[in-house]
Amino acid sequence: MRLLIVNPNTSSSVTQRIRAAAAAMAQPGDVFTTLCPDCGPELIVTDADAQEARHAVVATIRQHAEPCDGIVLASFGNTGAEEVRALRKDVPVIGIASAAFSAALVLGGPFGIVTFGKALVPGLRAKVEELGLDDRLLGIAYLPGDDFGDPGTVSERYRDELAELCDTMVRRGSTSIVMGGGPLAGLASVLSEDCPVPVIDGTQAAVNLMRSVTFRRERAT
Rank of each mutant, 00 (worst) to 15 (best):
V128K: 05
I61C: 01
E42D: 08
S75Y: 13
D90M: 04
Q63H: 13
Q204K: 06
V190W: 06
F148L: 11
S75T: 15
F116L: 09
A205S: 15
F111Y: 09
D134L: 09
I113P: 01
I96Q: 13
R54D: 11
I96G: 05
E83T: 09
V6P: 02
G70F: 03
I200V: 14
G109F: 11
L137G: 04
V72W: 06
L131N: 09
K127V: 13
S11C: 06
V57E: 04
R171V: 13
D38N: 07
R211L: 05
M179D: 03
G152Y: 05
A48L: 09
P8L: 06
T115Q: 01
I5V: 13
A141Y: 05
R217H: 11
V57Y: 00
A50L: 10
A23Q: 11
G40T: 02
V84G: 01
T221I: 13
S102Q: 14
S98H: 15
D150H: 01
I200C: 01
L138F: 06
A220F: 09
T46P: 02
L120K: 00
F101W: 12
A100S: 14
L3E: 00
L43S: 11
T34L: 01
K118A: 15
A103C: 13
L43K: 00
Y142K: 05
A97M: 14
V93C: 07
A100V: 12
R19W: 07
L165I: 12
D134W: 07
S189H: 11
C68N: 05
I61D: 05
T34I: 02
I5A: 02
L107M: 14
F215V: 10
C36Q: 07
G145Q: 11
T46R: 07
G182H: 01
A56C: 04
F116M: 14
V106L: 14
S174R: 08
G117T: 08
S192F: 00
D90N: 05
R2G: 04
T10N: 00
K89M: 15
G180T: 08
M210E: 08
R85E: 13
G123Q: 04
S192V: 12
L87G: 03
S192R: 09
R17P: 07
Y158D: 11
E129F: 13
G109P: 09
G139M: 03
T115N: 03
L133D: 02
V121G: 08
S102Y: 11
V57C: 03
H64T: 12
R216A: 13
G80F: 05
G109Q: 10
I18Q: 02
A65R: 13
A65C: 10
V57D: 01
I61Q: 01
G186L: 08
E218D: 11
R88H: 10
P92F: 04
R171I: 09
A53H: 03
D30H: 11
L187K: 05
E83Q: 13
A24R: 13
G112N: 04
R88Y: 12
R17W: 02
V199A: 02
A119M: 12
L133I: 10
C68I: 03
T60G: 00
A24I: 00
Y142W: 14
P183I: 08
S155N: 03
E66I: 07
I18E: 04
Q204T: 07
G112V: 12
S155V: 04
V6A: 00
A104R: 07
L43C: 06
R159Q: 15
E130A: 15
V197E: 09
E83S: 12
D69N: 03
D69I: 00
P41S: 02
Q27E: 12
T203A: 14
P37F: 10
L124F: 06
R216I: 12
G149H: 04
